[in-house]
Nucleic acid binder design. Structure first.
Lengths: 166, 166
DNA sequence: TGTGAAACTCACGGCCG
DNA sequence: CGGCCGTGAGTTTCACA
């Protein structure tokens, strides 16, 4: 596990592109598009999954259809030495936290949050600010996406990320 | 554009959850998991695609495997009235811009950017700052992700031959 | 709407160049 | 590695309740 050095040839990249565009396309279809037999395509896909170049296949859902109409990024400023471990723990407990990361700059961490509406977001924000290691937060609410179909415009799994491949 | 009022019953939601977890699962498998015939599952999926609850099926790729090892969020402060249209145009031309959105707060827009490395990122940033309507930018570089399995996957054309190093 | 059956297509493993 | 082939499973469409 944990392969870092993976080399991908042009054929692999074409297969990847095809599967990113549509994860449900058949190996036959992809094969005749790039000039390879279905079995060969499958072998390459299996290899890429093994080496974790491909980590899963997911469905892109329009978040608003599921009732998540508010999106925001929240900078978190921590008390004293930043405790990424504690923050990760907290982030995991909130289904509204789609992504969390430590960052450079003034803030210690950045949270990507999805909520049903502004009130819901405010409630989540209040709970996060109530954590003892949080000194201050700075929120930026997303108004409109400029790139339709961008991976995280709605690509993210709905709260509670699951991943698994048959 | 699309319909807003779409009602999803518990069965639809279960199908969605299954497909988000793994977009390549068969309708048969999903069907017997939730107690429905394969044909019924397919019809529901088709309906959800029609109503754009489901906007696509994609493959989750580990960005570093494609040579994208640097990730950043850039706040963009515009000159005069914010021209979202111009910004969208610009964002579309850069493969490095994974997402772009207008936001509340001091900045006019927020860009999500992926680059091969810091130098590459700096180059992109310089080009963006060179746009006439950009007054100022504020960058935040992502250090580490705290939530594993964050489906923020950018996969298109790889940057200049970055690949299996080390 | 959900079910059942039909034909078609695909995935998967084994074997060979 | 890639191509070929056979079997079993899945997909898709249809008519029917």
């Amino acid at each position: 596990m944990a392969h870092q050095p993976v080399s991908l040839d042009p054929l692999d990249r074409k297969i990847l592109a095809a599967l990113v565009a549509n994860a449900r396309r058949s190996f036959v279809e992809i094969g005749q598009e790039i000039g390879l037999s279905p079995a060969a395509v499958k072998r390459r896909v299996d290899r890429m999954r093994e080496s974790e170049v491909i980590t899963g296949f997911t469905t892109v859902v329009r978040p608003s259809a599921l009732g998540w109409r508010t999106e925001a990024y929240v900078e978190v400023f921590c008390e004293g030495a930043a405790p990424p471990r504690r923050l990760a723990e907290v982030a995991r407990t909130y289904p509204e936290v789609v992504a969390a990361m430590t960052v450079t700059g003034g803030a210690d961490a950045l949270l990507h949050i999805r909520a049903a509406d502004i009130e819901h977001f405010e409630e989540v924000l209040e709970r996060i600010r109530a954590e003892d290691f949080v000194r201050r937060t700075n929120s930026v609410i997303v108004l409109t996406h400029l790139l339709p179909g961008s991976p995280d415009a709605g690509a993210s799994a709905p709260p509670r990320g699951a991943e698994g491949v048959s």
